[in-house]
């Protein structure tokens, strides 16, 4: 899992490691079961070293001192904003994009629908190019077959984006 996912999960408010884990689990459902607790702490430590998160001492005294709360530094905040705006393809990580929407919505970093639109725009551009290339090929060439595969994958991704759009539209109007 990318560091930025963990960073983004902290964008809403400073959290303890266990809270962070719970939040991820909620967002990923059964897919989150496989998540290793140690991995999150390693990531947090690494982020702390990079100066993207800072450990905050709870204000109400020592009895909770064994549990550190992590919060974003200004650098961290900037990194998260960059990541949200980033369009990742050709290796779309569905979970990553999904968590991006969750984090964007919960922390109010961006409108999930805008994130969806941005992603779609990019995919459509690629679809257009792939399609033009496919139409230029003769129907039985090997390249045409490969391009057809790309077009179909892009279409599948676009369809999922449609589902995301509808889902987040509902949530927005529902809340």
């Amino acid at each position: 899992m990318r560091q930025e996912v963990v960073l983004a999960m902290l964008a809403k408010e400073p959290s303890h490691g266990y809270q962070l884990r719970a939040r991820l689990r909620e967002a990923l459902g059964p897919l989150g079961d496989a998540m290793n607790a140690g991995h999150i702490y390693v990531t947090l430590t690494r982020l702390e070293k990079a100066g993207l998160v800072a450990v905050e001492v709870p204000a109400d005294g020592a009895d909770r001192s064994d549990r550190k709360a992590y919060g974003l530094t200004p650098d961290g905040q900037q990194r998260v904003a960059e990541w949200i705006a980033e369009v990742s393809w050709p290796k779309p990580d569905l979970a990553e994009f999904h968590l991006k929407l969750v984090a964007a919505a919960s922390a109010g970093l961006a409108d999930p629908l805008t994130v969806v639109d941005t992603q779609r725009r990019e995919l459509l551009r690629r679809l257009r190019d792939a399609q033009r290339a496919a139409m230029a090929e003769s129907a039985r060439s090997n390249a045409a077959l490969l391009l057809e595969g790309i077009v179909l994958r892009l279409q599948a991704d676009l369809r999922w984006l449609e589902a995301c759009e509808q889902n987040w539209t509902h949530r927005r109007s529902g809340s």
Partner: peptide, 27 residues
């Protein structure tokens, strides 16, 4: 999406409003 992708420009429409304009050339 396939037919939309043949366009020069694409608009998304939601609830009666055009919300997003995309120039599709040069992907």
């Amino acid at each position: 999406a396939r037919i939309a992708a043949t366009a020069d420009r694409m608009f998304s429409m939601r609830d009666g409003v055009l919300i997003d304009e995309t120039r599709l050339t040069g992907g």
